[in-house]
Design a protein around this nucleic acid. Structure first.
Lengths: 250, 250
DNA sequence: TGTACATCAGTGAACGCGCGTTCACTGATGTAC
DNA sequence: TGTACATCAGTGAACGCGCGTTCACTGATGTAC
């Protein structure tokens, strides 16, 4: 590979390994977001002051405008990052267990969801919480997307279990006609492998997990020892599994 | 009753119906909090600007200092109010059903929890969410109290079911030794009527409900028709009931 | 390989703004005799 | 019942502050020939 790239290569947006400057820029971008996150954590808030970030980084505030057009753009980037990070974290957790170990994969994914939220409640709240002050979310943007993606992850696991013949009847069998119609429409992509009741169960199980995770991340379980919370979470995962009709994974 | 109160009456802090001025003051206090809430709702935020409240009420900002020492005091009041309001709302829902109709009481209380949150996500987030920007919560204050109170409400219902002989075995029977010890200690007040497994189930059921409620209140179920959400919630209540080992209430 | 030019990160001064809060005041409402 | 005084809600002017943002600049890094 030559040191000089051709015009064609540039036009195609091809490789051309980043120079020192570009790498520095990328690093600074990351540092800004990381610093913002640290500040949020430090003050237990979801608010960010541009000035504070600069100060914490040893920069003057105007320098940040080289990287983000304004405060909103930074927040949007952080929200997007959080989505991606949560997604990859869940996927990694899933892949950390052997493909045949469906129960293990389920448990690991649930645990990752919990750990991720507990590790940084601010990002969790950025995704699932009430909007940030002064920040106007992009039109119908990633906000509801959160639901979709989290669901997709769960749906994949359930589908795998179904195909592995490890999926029994969901805990709640009753599904209304309206919900059935809706689910059938939604489930086309899964080629009818998943029925309406199981689809409903996915939402129920997800809610159950999310409830625990959200209460814990927001400090509502502070009165319990961490060990006890672990036990409780294990039980909550059991509940989710039973709701879905999975073979006992724990 | 005479128009004049005695010094003794005043000292004892007795009745003495509030005069016009006092009534006006109380009304203004309420109006301030209500306006703050309306503004929060309007801009989909948990932030409040003192100036905005005054403007919305047709007052000058300094006037508010007759009622609240500063912004924090207003927020604290709003948090406290939210607690009380949620509490009474749940209690009212419970009492709206006959004492013998334990299933009905359970369902009604769950539904009230949901409705309350959906009706004002801001207050819900004030109680259960991440702290408000710039607002430093009172020491170890009501924040974790939320857990306790919500639990107390649920515990009451479960206890009633237990005493009514309508409480079966909880869905998840396994309880770790550590959790058993903890629960036993916590449950002294219930005179051993409730076992550790049921105590654990209470937390699990609450989490499950809370998850749905929180996802819905934060708009994560926006992609579902309201009717479908209703159906889904009904199923979620079923899940909670089964987790607790209640006779099928729905 | 060296030189001339272009790009770009970061600075420092400056701005406008709006917010929280204070203060001395006015006028209405309530209280004591 | 009337008068004198006390209380208190609300005003308007003023303050300090810190934040977001702009602008013209400097100096370092990268690029073309």
């Amino acid at each position: 590979m030559s040191a000089h790239s051709t015009a064609a290569e540039r036009a195609a947006g091809l490789a051309e390994p980043p120079n020192r400057r570009q790498r520095a820029r990328a690093a600074t971008l990351d540092e800004i977001k990381q610093t913002a996150l640290d500040l949020m954590r430090e003050q237990g808030t979801v608010d960010v002051r541009f000035t504070d970030i600069a100060r914490a980084m040893g920069l003057t505030p105007p320098a940040l405008y080289r990287y983000f057009a304004d405060r909103d753009e930074l927040l949007t980037a952080m929200v997007t990052d959080s989505f991606v990070d949560l997604g990859t974290t869940l996927a990694e957790a899933r892949e950390s267990m052997a493909p045949e170990d469906l129960g293990g994969r389920f448990v690991a994914t649930c645990a990752a969801y919990r750990t991720w939220a507990a590790a940084s409640p601010q990002r969790f709240s950025l995704i699932f919480g009430v909007p940030v002050p002064g920040y106007s979310a992009p039109v119908d943007g990633p906000t509801t997307d959160a639901a979709q993606r989290a669901m997709a992850n769960l749906a994949g696991l359930v589908l795998a279990n179904q195909q592995g013949g490890r999926l029994g009847a969901p805990l709640v069998g009753d599904v209304s006609a309206a919900f059935t119609a809706f689910a059938t429409h939604k489930l086309e992509e899964y080629a009818d492998a998943i029925g309406p009741a199981t689809y409903q169960a996915m939402l129920l199980a997800w809610s159950a997990l999310h409830g625990f995770v959200s209460l814990e991340a927001n400090g509502q379980f502070g009165w319990m020892e961490p060990v006890l919370r672990d036990e409780l979470f294990r039980a909550q995962v059991r509940v989710a599994a039973v709701v879905l009709g999975l073979e006992p994974p724990v």
